[in-house]
């Protein structure tokens, strides 16, 4: 017999969900709680999306994000420390993106990233291309902040990095990004 449960709308930038802890959610997912997995997805989809977007062509980002959550769902019981979920699923995302690039011989550098006639889209893709060439730590952190709209604290909470590390990544990444874009007026 089916049971129909309502799930809440995914918030845009609100991440904290009380009073359930991440560990409780992970344990619930591991025991097959679909509702808990839905909440986990809502909390971490932006982290995964940012990581994948920084590595693969946009056209395949959604499919790969899906694959990452598939893998996480199937393997969640292998996760020994629930508090490490963020780093764990981030690693899955990086590995999945790496596999994708390895298996796709014609990924000559992100071939689909060609803008149409929209000048804003062209600038977006040009900036994305520069961001993608930043070191991993800077790239991922900046994409979480600038694409996904996560705050520094949220990035730290989701990735498991310390707030200080996130702050350094944002600051240095932004400095490098300005340099590479030739935007030096506001540093």
């Amino acid at each position: 017999m089916d049971h129909v449960l309502e799930l809440p709308r995914v918030p845009v930038v609100t991440w904290r969900r009380e009073p359930e802890t991440l560990a409780e959610t992970i344990r619930a997912v591991a025991s097959g709680d679909q509702d808990a997995f839905a909440r986990l997805y809502a909390d971490y989809v932006r982290l995964v999306h940012a990581i994948v977007l920084g590595r693969v062509p946009r056209r395949d980002v959604d499919d790969l994000v899906q694959d990452v959550f598939l893998t996480a769902y199937v393997r969640v019981r292998e996760l020994r420390d629930p508090a490490a979920f963020g780093g764990w699923i981030a690693a899955i995302a990086r590995n999945r993106a790496t596999d994708y690039l390895r298996q796709s011989p014609r990924q000559e550098p992100l071939p689909e990233e060609v803008a149409g006639g929209d000048p804003i889209e062209a600038e977006t893709l040009a900036v994305l291309d520069v961001v993608r060439k930043l070191p991993d730590a800077y790239r991922e952190t900046l994409l979480m902040r600038l694409v996904e709209g996560m705050s520094g604290n949220e990035i730290a909470e989701r990735t498991g990095l310390t707030p200080a590390s996130v702050r350094v990544n944002l600051h240095r990444g932004m400095k490098l990004l300005r340099q590479r874009l030739g935007w030096t007026g506001h540093e």
């Binding site: 977007l53 899906q66 900036v127 994305l128 961001v131 600038l146 709209g149």
Partner: peptide
């Protein structure tokens, strides 16, 4: 870049 935000 916000145009690229996850829409799924």
């Amino acid at each position: 870049l916000g145009r690229l935000r996850s829409t799924r």
